[in-house]
Design a protein around this nucleic acid. Structure first.
Lengths: 314, 314
DNA sequence: GCAAGGTCTTGCAAATTTGCAAGGCTTGTT
DNA sequence: AACAAGCCTTGCAAATTTGCAAGACCTTGC
């Protein structure tokens, strides 16, 4: 796109539905508004706004473009606001980016413990349903599922973790038993939305030979909650299992995936001792929590009757 | 901000670290690059890039602006891409956008039930840690927390729901008791990351007079898990409470928020009977599930000893 | 120390964009 | 049917932006 500012003009016109009103709002002549939008349309090769005597209406392409235009607007507003802020270093605040499985099922207990011991510490967790691409000012550090191949970054491996197929006991009670891989065919599979898989490490189901996703989400946490509520079966992080009552792994000896978490930081932060200390603590506690959660899973499976009684849902 | 396009130029200069290279990349004269960035700096009243003979480096204000510039870039790229798409029909698959609180704590059980009754149905849930702004091609329908004020949309109110301050029983046992509003001051508050609140309806804490967020996330689910694991107290959707053992509402008579969910569809879909039927079913079941979950909360509080025993954590 | 290379800044002319105003079209009112 | 109001489009002049080229400054290599 040649000129981002044309999007600003388009957005005003889409909202005001008249060149005159958009021009007033933008403090531009209506002729200019019309030309700018026409220029954008020409650049994109699409009509974005259809002109009729009742006013303007979005075309299909225009409607598709709207959310992105709004996102851009929000970013521009935030950019303007960020310039006004008088930032005095990080000053006790640390921002971590993480895939949402880690952000929901691992980080909260770790951050709760660290903050309990460090009352002056403020932590922000950016959970995104995809791999976080560290940029220095988006976050201070990130947890990733693969090693970044470019960028001036330092990478430390946190730990391996396992994933398995799982379903709720209630779902399993209502559906044919699964005793081998063929038995999976009759089941509803829950996983990522295929066109929203941003890292090949996340493409679990393809690796297991399960391709059709009947119910999907861009978020691991949502997938987990779908499985938990009996929508079907899908791949679950072992460390997430203790978060729900009544989940059962399926054919764990036949279907098992191992992945790794990495702590990713910007090289330039090596000299920042506050961040170094936090990163050390985070690493240590994440590793410990993973071991602890995996123990819980093993114990729950070693004593299934006891687990079922303790994990009775509300 | 006067000209959004200046952000594009700034971004290139920040990345290339030289007027010459940025100009090459942008197909602009270096003189133009310099002037455009200077104009942006003048408009914002801030130096964004410091000039030295080793090249250019971001100032602090420039570094703060970077993530927003990147977000704008992503939106612009997506906008350009959206204009290219030739979208075909849906064919048995339905995509729903929802705020992540709804996507994690309400939709999974509803979708599980609907899919159980309709095996040929494929559902995709797009969970975003912000209000989803419906565009026809991003999703077939969306659940929102406010009524859209513009756009050719049909809006149906799903239901009101309540939010309250809450904390885990373990956290409460380890911290000073809270008997009135003043008692909140000594507690760690968990909430949204302030610069990532995209809809004023989500600004719960400001409405309650609680402003400092010690531990934050862009995701309601992560906030919930932080609270659940004892990181502090924060605002929780009532309908989410049954998903965790051992959560307690705090001063529910003094601090209570009511919000609403809306089902938002595009007007042009009114004639699509498959979507109409799905929307009807979704509406009905969401309303029922909300009533059911709120009943569970009320019952758990009416019998606290019994609730504590049943909700013993693993 | 000097020369070469690289980079940025600035003045001026060329290119592009914008505002103004007139004309055309539609709708509503008398 | 005629007229007025509102809106958009288009041509032209004014305003603004951009490219070009020269000069200034710094760094590096010999």
């Amino acid at each position: 796109m040649t000129d981002w500012d044309d999007i600003r003009i388009f957005l005003a016109l889409a909202r005001m539905e008249s060149l005159g009103r958009a021009g007033q709002h933008l403090r531009l002549d209506p002729a200019t508004v019309g030309r700018r939008v026409a220029r954008l349309e020409e650049g994109l090769g699409r009509r974005l706004i259809s002109r009729s005597h009742q006013g303007y209406a979005l075309t299909e392409a225009g409607a598709r473009l709207m959310p992105h235009a709004i996102a851009a607007e929000n970013a521009m507003l935030a950019a303007g606001k960020s310039a006004e802020e008088e930032q005095t270093g990080l000053s006790g605040q640390i921002r971590i980016g993480a895939p949402d499985g880690c952000a929901n099922f691992l980080l909260p207990q770790v951050i709760a413990a660290i903050c309990s011991e460090n009352p002056a510490l403020d932590v922000q967790i950016i959970a995104l349903p995809r791999v976080f691409n560290l940029s220095r000012r988006e976050a201070d550090m990130a947890i990733g599922v693969s090693r970044p191949e470019t960028g001036r970054l330092s990478v430390q491996k946190i730990s391996d973790y396992q994933l398995h197929l799982a379903a709720s006991a209630r779902y399993l009670a209502q559906h044919p038993p699964i005793t081998d891989a063929d038995g999976l065919r009759d089941h509803r599979i829950i996983g990522y939305i295929p066109d929203m898989i941003f890292d090949s490490e996340l493409d679990y189901l393809a690796e297991l030979g399960l391709e059709r996703v009947a119910v999907g989400s861009n978020s691991v946490a949502v997938q987990f909650n779908l499985i938990r509520h009996g929508a079907g079966l899908g791949v679950v992080h072992d460390f997430a299992l203790p978060a729900a009552a009544d989940m059962r792994r399926i054919l764990p000896d036949q279907f098992s995936l191992t992945r790794s978490f990495y702590l990713i930081r910007h090289l330039d932060d090596r000299g920042v001792s506050r961040l170094n200390r936090f990163a050390e603590t985070l690493l240590r506690r994440l590793r410990r929590e993973l071991v602890h959660l995996q123990d819980m899973v093993a114990k729950a499976e070693a004593a299934p009757d006891r687990a079922a009684a303790l994990n009775r849902p509300v």
